[in-house]
Simulated scan of single mutants.
Amino acid sequence: MEDRPREPANWSEIAHVVVALSIPVIANGDVLECQDFQNIRDVTGASSLMVARGAIWNASIFSHEETRFEEVKREYVRKSIIWDHDIKSTKYTLKEMIMHYTSLELPERKGRD
């Protein structure tokens, strides 16, 4: 089975790997909000966790405090400027945040299928 981001993570399969191995296992998949850290750890028993899309979509994922989306975007841009972050990467991350948390109907771009 092809494992793609559009498919939900199967945390129970990770749990089988944790039981079968005597080495630390890093769990990953569908960690999209702060509570998911504890949820995936409870289900899998993994020693560590990894987060990717969740951190791109919500830069405040590691905070237990509820943060307004507009504040997260503003703070992300502020820190990107302070830390001289690559503008293309900053733009990509902001686009991902906006596309994940809003439903925009965008016209097709010229030259794209």
Rank of each mutant, 00 (worst) to 15 (best):
R4Y: 14
P5S: 08
R6N: 14
E7A: 07
N10R: 07
W11H: 09
E13I: 03
I14S: 01
A15S: 09
H16I: 06
V18A: 03
L21V: 10
S22W: 04
P24N: 07
I26P: 06
I26E: 07
A27P: 05
A27T: 11
A27K: 10
G29E: 01
L32N: 11
E33M: 06
C34S: 15
C34R: 13
Q38C: 09
N39L: 14
D42Q: 08
V43F: 01
S47I: 08
S47W: 05
S47T: 09
S48L: 14
V51S: 02
V51D: 02
R53I: 00
G54V: 00
A55N: 01
I56F: 09
I56T: 07
N58M: 10
N58C: 13
A59C: 10
F62C: 05
F62G: 02
E66R: 12
T67H: 14
R68G: 09
F69N: 02
F69Y: 03
E70S: 14
V72Q: 08
K73H: 02
Y76V: 08
V77H: 01
K79R: 15
I81C: 12
I82V: 09
D86G: 02
S89T: 13
T90S: 03
T90F: 01
Y92L: 12
T93L: 06
K95H: 10
E96S: 05
M97K: 09
M99V: 06
H100E: 09
T102M: 05
T102Q: 08
S103G: 12
E105Q: 13
E105W: 02
L106Q: 07
E108C: 14
K110T: 11
